[in-house]
Amino acid sequence: MDAGTGSDTGTGSDTDSSEVPDPAFLNPALGDFLVVSTQHVPKDIVVQKITLGNTQLLIDGQTAGTLGPGSALGELTGDRLRIFLHGALALGTHTLQLASLTPDGPRFSAELTMNVGAPDNPLPQVWTELDPEPRDVGDALLVSGAPPDILLGVVSGGLDPTLRLYRADEGAWADTPVLETSLKGYVPEVMSLGPGVAALVLPRPPGSDGTVVRVAYRRGLPGDAIVTRDLTIAPEPNIGPLQTAVDLSADLFRDAEFAALGKPFLLGDVLLTEFLAADDAETAHPGDRGIAHVRRSSDRSSWAAPSGSRPPNRSTSTLSGPPSPCLSSASAPASPSASVSASPACSRSPTPAPPSSRSQAKKSTCLPVHPRCSPRSPATSALAPSPPSLPIGA
């Protein structure tokens, strides 16, 4: 099964190469076409000579799979290629190509160029003027909650990482933090878009005037635990104990060859966290990534055992006959190496053979895989290094 689409990409091993036609684009057949970066309407391209379950789409030279049912990228039928657009494309250029597998090697279509352009009507812009003097300096920011309990967090790294939390005061952030707490064991993830830290003002129990802030963060790198601490800021300050909400000893990760916890999220007395639990640390599979959720006890004294949500169809499909031929990266035509921006998800390499023949499958050179699909890469979205220390304006 194709890791990104849930569809077969390894068919054709028992098919004569003369029976597999060269796939082709019909409209447009050659050249380029334009999509707008804010476009939500899917882009349809007329195609022909598609071998369903075999013909794959290449974007910038990287396989997107056969685009079968359930693909987040698009759909490929006998006469139509539909690309899903989500209104958040980066401006640039990408190449599209079709490829069908045969025992004698892949058969390619002509190459189309997709130009992503800016909309005719510019998007509304919002700006503000910051005070010249910074309120604080740190390595990362986080914003949580909604008025009147919205919080601004400033994370400072180093040997003793800390979190300082500010509350809003009459439309502006307070001059001084309402609390500061240590993040013992927290290690910033260089390639992450945000800190692995969350903070939330808890709902007040009926008849209570106390204000409690819960802080959660990922400990270790790769993350081996999510720990939490409750801090009372009113009426009397009080620092609660550091507690482990979930760690890698949980049954959820028992059978994984490699496991790591990601960024936590707080929703009242429920904690959610991303996780990676790979059955095979060398090859990515559907369901390697998931969401663990943990519920707090009614008296807010401890955490229950975690449970997880992972995509279905995690088992490796078994294909009869000899291993199917793979598209060779050496035989594929040269193409730009820009990453794919047209979809929030991408495909991974074709599913390996069953365990009994996995050693043979690993010797094959298959279609190039998008770098963001590596099991060692952080979760899906464009990745960028964490910024240096930054001043925080009012």
Rank of each mutant, 00 (worst) to 15 (best):
D209L: 06
D209P: 07
D209H: 12
D209T: 10
D209G: 11
G210R: 10
G210Q: 11
T211F: 06
T211G: 09
V213C: 01
V213G: 03
V213F: 02
R214N: 10
R214M: 04
V215A: 02
V215Q: 03
A216K: 04
A216H: 10
A216W: 07
A216S: 12
Y217S: 08
Y217F: 15
Y217W: 15
Y217V: 01
R218G: 00
R218V: 00
R218K: 10
R218H: 03
R219N: 12
R219H: 13
R219L: 14
R219Y: 14
G220K: 00
G220V: 00
L221F: 10
L221K: 04
L221I: 01
L221C: 01
P222W: 02
G223C: 11
G223H: 06
D224S: 11
D224I: 05
D224C: 07
D224P: 06
A225V: 03
A225F: 10
A225H: 08
A225W: 05
I226H: 02
I226W: 00
I226Y: 00
V227T: 12
V227G: 12
V227W: 09
T228Y: 05
T228P: 07
R229V: 02
R229C: 00
D230W: 01
D230C: 02
L231W: 05
L231G: 06
L231N: 09
L231K: 06
T232Y: 01
T232Q: 10
T232M: 07
I233R: 08
I233A: 11
A234Y: 01
P235G: 08
E236F: 06
P237Y: 07
P237Q: 03
N238V: 04
N238K: 14
N238F: 04
N238E: 14
I239E: 15
I239F: 14
G240F: 04
G240S: 13
G240K: 06
P241H: 12
P241W: 03
P241V: 05
P241C: 13
P241E: 13
P241Y: 04
L242H: 06
Q243H: 13
Q243F: 12
T244Y: 08
T244N: 13
T244F: 04
A245M: 12
A245W: 03
A245L: 10
A245T: 12
A245C: 11
A245N: 08
L248A: 08
L248D: 02
L248V: 01
L248Q: 09
A250G: 13
A250V: 02
A250S: 15
D251I: 05
L252V: 15
R254G: 13
R254A: 15
D255E: 15
D255M: 10
A256L: 09
E257P: 07
E257L: 14
F258V: 14
F258H: 15
F258C: 11
F258D: 14
A259V: 04
A260W: 12
A260S: 15
L261I: 02
L261N: 02
L261T: 00
G262Q: 03
G262M: 04
G262T: 01
G262D: 08
G262P: 07
